[in-house]
Amino acid sequence: MDVFMKGLSKAKEGVVAAAEKTKQGVAEAAGKTKEGVLYVGSKTKEGVVHGVATVAEKTKEQVTNVGGAVVTGVTAVAQKTVEGAGSIAAATGFVKKDQLGKNEEGAPQEGILEDMPVDPDNEAYEMPSEEGYQDYEPEA
């Protein structure tokens, strides 16, 4: 019985440690998101679009440190934060509304985080759909 109880105690310690790591990862992701939003706020009209992409990228980098179902929630929060940063930029006159959601080359930025393969159960990952990809044929 002692062996059984000791095993359960060790398992509990492992769960607590994993929860603490997840909590730490979420806190880091939130900190990076805040950094990115402050970065966007300090940019001029020309830099705002690039700044919004930076927020998304920093958040995406930190999301990889967070495991399990938390990833889905962090990704949703990050996307809403990026959308909010863009709205703030438009409201303050840093950028025109028609410039939001495009990178410096004018290509749409939507789907940055949505296409990231995420499995809350950590069982399997699927690649994003290939609808947006084109076949590449090298020139002879």
Score class of each variant (00 low, 15 high):
Gly41Asn: 01
Tyr125Asn: 06
Glu126Asp: 09
Ala29Tyr: 15
Val49Thr: 14
Ala17Trp: 15
Glu20Arg: 03
Gly73Phe: 15
Glu61Gln: 08
Ala91Lys: 15
Val15Phe: 02
Ser9Lys: 13
Pro138Leu: 11
Lys96Ile: 14
Gly86Pro: 04
Glu46Thr: 09
Glu13Arg: 02
Lys96His: 13
Tyr133Met: 13
Pro128Gly: 02
Glu126Arg: 03
Pro117Ser: 06
Thr22Trp: 04
Ala30Ile: 12
Pro128Leu: 04
Lys34Thr: 06
Gln134Asn: 11
Val118Gln: 15
Gln99Arg: 00
Lys6Asp: 06
Val63Ile: 09
Val40Glu: 00
Lys96Val: 13
Ala140Trp: 10
Gly132Asp: 10
His50Arg: 14
Leu8Ala: 02
Gly68Ser: 07
Ala30Thr: 10
Thr72Asp: 09
Asp115Lys: 13
Gly51Glu: 02
Ala107Arg: 12
Val74Gly: 02
Ala18His: 03
Glu105Asn: 14
Asn122Trp: 02
Gln62Asn: 05
Ala29Gly: 03
Gly31Met: 00
Gly47Val: 03
Pro108Gly: 14
Leu8Ile: 01
Asp115Glu: 07
Ala69Gly: 05
Val66Arg: 04
Lys34Trp: 02
Val74Trp: 13
Thr81Tyr: 07
Glu110Cys: 10
Lys23Val: 11
Val118Asp: 13
Val66Tyr: 14
Asn103Glu: 05
Gln99Thr: 13
Gly68Asp: 00
Tyr39Leu: 03
Thr59Glu: 01
Asn122Leu: 13
Ile88Leu: 09
Val71Ile: 03
Asp121Met: 04
Glu57Pro: 03
Val77Phe: 15
Val52Asp: 00
Glu110Tyr: 10
Gly47Trp: 08
Met5Phe: 09
Ala56Pro: 04
Leu38Pro: 00
Ala90Asn: 10
Gly67Gln: 03
Lys58Ile: 08
Thr33Arg: 01
Ala107Phe: 13
Ser129Thr: 11
Ala56Phe: 13
Asn122Asp: 12
Val77Thr: 03
Ala89Ser: 08
Lys21His: 05
Glu130Gly: 11
Met1Asp: 01
Val63Phe: 06
Gly25Phe: 12
Val66Ala: 05
Val77Tyr: 15
Ala11Tyr: 12
Lys58Pro: 00
Thr22Ser: 15
Val15Ser: 00
Ala30Arg: 04
Gly86Trp: 08
Gly47Phe: 15
Ala30Ser: 01
Glu114Ser: 14
Thr22Tyr: 11
Lys6Tyr: 08
Gln79His: 05
Gly68Ile: 08
Ser129Arg: 10
Val71Ser: 03
Gly86Leu: 10
Lys96Cys: 13
Gly36His: 11
Ala56His: 08
Tyr39Val: 05
Thr33Lys: 02
Pro108His: 07
Leu113Lys: 13
Glu110Ile: 14
Val40Leu: 07
Gly73Met: 03
Val82Asp: 03
Met5Leu: 04
Glu35Asp: 03
Gly73Gln: 11
Asp98Lys: 10
Glu131Met: 05
Gly67Met: 05
Ser42Val: 08
Thr92Leu: 14
Glu20Gln: 08
Pro138Met: 12
Lys43Glu: 01
Met127Glu: 11
Ser42Cys: 14
Ser42Leu: 02
Gln134Pro: 13
Pro120Tyr: 09
Ser129Gln: 09
Val49Arg: 12
Ala18Trp: 15
Lys34Met: 13
Lys12Ser: 05
Asn122Arg: 13
Val77Ile: 08
Lys45Asn: 02
Tyr125Ser: 11
Leu113Cys: 13
Asp2Ala: 03
Tyr133Val: 14
Ile88Lys: 02
Glu126Val: 04
Lys58Val: 07
Met1Ser: 00
Gln99Asn: 07
Ala27Gly: 04
Val55His: 01
Gly36Met: 11
Met116Leu: 03
Asp121Trp: 06
Val71Gly: 02
Ala124Glu: 13
Gly106Lys: 09
Val37Cys: 12
Val16Glu: 04
Val118Thr: 15
Lys6His: 09
Val95Tyr: 05
Ile88Gln: 03
Val48Pro: 08
Gly73Tyr: 01
Thr81Leu: 04
Ala30Asn: 00
Gly93Ser: 04
Thr75Gln: 06
Ala11Asp: 00
Asp115Thr: 13
Asp121Phe: 08
Thr33Met: 07
Lys102Gln: 09
Lys21Asp: 01
Thr92Trp: 15
Ile112Asn: 07
Thr59Gly: 05
Ala124Asn: 15
Lys60Trp: 02
Ala140Ile: 05
Glu137Gly: 12
Gly51Lys: 08
Ala90Lys: 12
Val82Ala: 03
Val16Cys: 09
Thr64Gln: 05
Met127Val: 09
Asn103Ala: 11
Asp115Pro: 10
Gln79Glu: 10
Glu104Trp: 14
Lys43Pro: 00
Ala89Glu: 03
Met116Trp: 05
Thr81Pro: 02
Lys96Ala: 14
Ser87Asp: 13
Pro138Phe: 13
Ile112Lys: 13
Val82Pro: 04
Gly93His: 10
Ala69Gln: 10
Lys60Glu: 01
Tyr133Asn: 09
Val66Met: 10
Gly31Ala: 15
Ala107Met: 07
Asp115Phe: 05
Gly84Tyr: 07
Asp119Glu: 08
Asn65Lys: 08
Thr75Glu: 05
Gly36Ile: 15
Gly25His: 10
Asp119Arg: 10
Val49Gly: 04
Val55Thr: 03
Thr64Pro: 04
Leu100Met: 05
Val40Tyr: 15
Val3Cys: 07
Gly41Pro: 00
Asn65Gly: 08
Asn103Tyr: 06
Ala30Gly: 03
Met5Gly: 02
Phe4Tyr: 14
Glu83Cys: 04
Tyr125Gly: 12
Ser129Pro: 08
Thr92Asn: 03
Glu46Gly: 07
Glu131Asp: 13
Gln79Phe: 05
Ile112Trp: 13
Gly7Val: 09
Gln24Asp: 06
Phe94His: 07
Gln134His: 04
Val70Glu: 04
Glu28Pro: 01
